[in-house]
């Protein structure tokens, strides 16, 4: 399979990249890991005239702590990096879990978190973990920088709030105050090289008194966008579950299923997916809560 013809640019600073993008606008595409973009180009779903690669820009590939306010992920952090990074594993393991299930080891060595978000696949492995972590994204364009919550970022399959002349430059994950835990489960057909049939991520934070201070559940592949489920947060907020088998988790899981909007396609039917949302959400909640109990 051949790539269509294009011009290639490899700026060395974000500003340079931004001005190039400002110049070419919709004719250009940003190249990060290329695991989605180049596939789409080979299949002639996209034929940009200009490719602007970010890979020669220093400092976009890592995560670091930002003066006590949280974590910053460089947009070119690869899935392999996120899965293997001690920092990510310790601070936000749900993201490491999601990253470790993305594609295959070969894909994970190239696929980037920025690219994964921009591609905006409903079945993304990274978006649900980032949604439950209340991530924000920073976009830079000719009119300057803006930061928005990830939940406002996705507009539809392949559609995001990013303007044609903007570049995703940072992903911010706010600090977590109390004891917290997260979990990610992916249901696919085979055990690797898989697109989610359904995936769920959850994040729980405990208050001092042992009640749930914050609960967030996000779902993949069951709506046009990776979906955060406010009803789950509402049900669990302030609750003090007896143990991981507390029926409140099932109740929350049912609410998640209610909120999902799955479709029937060749990978699976809507009713199966909806029920799987319930099962997987329930399992992630129980898993996260049992981690919390171990930490307390």
């Amino acid at each position: 399979m051949l790539l269509p013809k294009f011009d290639y640019h490899a700026p060395t600073t974000i500003d340079e990249a931004c001005s190039m993008l400002g110049h070419y606008g919709a004719k250009a595409k940003i190249l990060a890991g290329g695991t989605d973009l180049l596939v789409h180009m080979k299949k002639r779903l996209l034929s940009p005239e200009q490719i602007i690669s970010l890979n020669k820009i220093e400092g976009l590939k890592e995560a670091f702590s930002q003066n006590g306010t949280g974590l910053v992920l460089g947009p070119l952090s690869t899935a392999a990096y996120l899965a293997d990074s001690r920092l990510i594993q310790e601070r936000i393991s749900v993201l490491a879990q999601g990253a470790s299930r993305l594609g295959s080891p070969l894909i994970r060595n190239r696929a980037t978190v920025g690219g994964n978000l921009i591609t905006a696949r409903p079945a993304s492995d990274l978006a649900p973990p980032l949604l439950v972590l209340s991530a924000k994204v920073t976009l830079k364009g000719p009119r300057g920088e803006r930061t928005l919550p990830l939940e406002d970022f996705f507009l539809g399959p392949g559609q995001t709030a990013v303007q044609a002349d903007e570049i995703l430059t940072k992903i911010l994950i706010p600090n977590i105050q109390g004891i917290s835990a997260g979990a990610y489960i992916k249901l696919g057909t085979r055990k690797a090289l898989e697109i989610s049939l359904v995936n769920t991520a959850c994040f729980l934070e405990l208050a001092q008194d042992g009640s749930i201070k914050l609960a967030r559940v996000a779902l993949g592949a069951v709506a046009p966008i990776p979906l955060l489920t406010p009803s789950v947060s509402k049900i669990l907020a302030g609750v003090k579950p007896k143990n991981m088998d507390d029926p409140v988790f099932r109740e929350a899981a049912r609410a998640a299923a209610q909120e999902s909007k799955p479709i029937t396609d060749h990978r699976g039917s809507a009713d199966y997916r909806r029920y799987m949302v319930e099962i997987l959400t329930w399992r992630t909640l129980k898993n996260a809560y049992s981690q919390l109990m171990e930490k307390v």
Partner: peptide, 29 residues
């Protein structure tokens, strides 16, 4: 037994003509 099926749409086009969507077992399966 578990995964494989060539799928078509109603125009007679194969909708999973790739090794990503036509699933043969990986080492983990």
């Amino acid at each position: 037994a578990l995964f494989e099926e060539v799928k078509f749409n109603d125009q007679g086009q194969i909708i999973n003509a790739s090794l990503g969507e036509y699933k043969i077992p990986t080492a983990l399966d």
